[in-house]
Amino acid sequence: MSENPSTRHPRELATAADPAWVDAFVVELRLLGVPGDEIGEHLVVLDTHLRESGEAVDEAFGDPREYARSLAPGGGPAAAVDRSTVAMAVLALVGVVLVPAALGAVLDGTRVTVTLGGVLAAVLLGGAVAGLVLPGAPLLALLVRRRWVSLLLAPALVALGAGLVLLLPQVLVRVPAPLVLGAGAAAVLAGSVLLARAPADLVTAPGERASGGGGRLLGLLVLPVFALVACVPVLLVRLLG
């Protein structure tokens, strides 16, 4: 068993249970907003029970999702997403959209053109993010429980967003590119700080304390890396064009 909770898989806390059962149980508890330390306690209790009784996990505990719901019938304390998570998601979205758009305009020596289709596509993207972070994470729950939806939803969103941008090119406003680049970079920076400061909420065994040192560094880097990756097509178009 790995000693460090930041690198250990929750399955390692319940090795007497079927790994697929444990995965479904942990995902359902996460969706219900149960904190990581409580999930760890449930896993250790389950593991002890299975070792002592010699029963199979589905025989003793039934369906993993139903069992998870019976442990947290009203949802856990983390079911309501805090303002910091919503702010982080919004800043990340704004930063990752604005930085590549502004970079292209800076390289071309033009202003950033805000079109009707662009605004509607941003609203669409914002709706998808809201479905992932709002209380109960309705979109996330749908994607986890119905895997096939994710196969259809991602291309459908991309197609709809691209369609809006292409079909509704009416210009609403033109903004100086350095201003947009600065705003995008500030949003990426602020989102990174919020992400790095967010508690790790790892699945820990009872009495174990989680340390999130590596997680904080990753939190600081993830949004700038996303923004850089989003800039790659902008640079490629100008280099190859």
Partner: peptide, 27 residues
């Protein structure tokens, strides 16, 4: 502990109480 509770219930004639029933109740 949980499994001992289930054993005592069974010994006293209430039959097998599954973990899936017992631990939510203890909660």
């Amino acid at each position: 502990h949980g499994y001992a509770v289930a054993q005592r219930l069974a010994e006293r004639g209430l039959g097998d109480v599954r973990g899936g029933t017992l631990y939510p109740l203890l909660g």
